[in-house]
Amino acid sequence: MAQCVLRATDATKKYGQSTALKKVNIEISRGQIYGLIGLNGAGKSTFMRAVTGLISLDGGEIELFGKSGAEALRKARRKMGQSIETPAIYPNLTATQNLEIQRLIGGVPDPGEVGRILKVIELSDTGKKKAKNFSFGMKQRLGLGIALITNPEFLILDEPTNGLDPRGIIEMRNLIRRLSEEQGITLLVSSHILDELSLVATHFGIIHKGEMIRELGADELAKEARQYIRIVVDKTAEAVAMLRERFKVSEYDVSGKNEIQVFERFDLTGEINAALVQSGIMVREISLSERKLEDYFMNLAEVRGQ
């Protein structure tokens, strides 16, 4: 069984009367890219801040690399890197100087690490240019470099593609993949765009109004949010039997009293309709539906919000 890198149990945070986190439970195992999805203000950054020790919890517990308790957690954070919200950089210093400061703070003995990280984040050629003159994408990459300079085993990235242009988004996505595949880093990445995270994450947690409303793997998400044929009939059992026998349908769901969702044979929608009618089954509705990831996410959030 893979080692648990992060375990949050009933994590609760209040700001005055409002509750930013309501008993959030998350478990992230080594090697995972965990996507934390939520609308703005859902509690993603608050949760990440709690994990990184920037804020204290009002209830619940956080465990990092199997360690809990204030002092043990603090020491465990040495194996962690973060870039939460805005890139945490010194604007009056160069990229090299920014990385050098974090190398010193993190006690990384090899000064050559600065050059290596500059190559990883593709900022080797910035020379004496100060960080305040960088584009937003460059600042994001520098923030990521600061998180990486201490060779973390666990990396927390809060909305890393926020404000990036399409090319920057692709580059960041590729970088996240490389960090996971080549360096074996476990990642917790947040976004308010499920489509974006679905391209890199292996596991997902959907947070809404401070509550974790759904946790699922990439396979489950693909299954729940994929394309299907929606058929509304009067005789559900007979229709299902016919779909199985005649069209060899094996992936389907019966939802409600009369609705069947078929997750294959999309090219045979017309034939299915004709066959059902010829068999004396009344087809009230048949359509090819596609539940986009964003719709799926919004639907979940709305259902929870009701």
């Binding site: 990184t52 020790g53 920037l54 954070r77 040495r78 962690m80 945490a88 703070i105 201490t150």
Partner: peptide, 14 residues
């Protein structure tokens, strides 16, 4: 303001 104060805290400095 820059958020740089987060860097030492999040890597376990007191």
């Amino acid at each position: 303001i820059t958020g740089a104060i987060r860097n030492p805290i999040s890597i376990g400095q007191t």
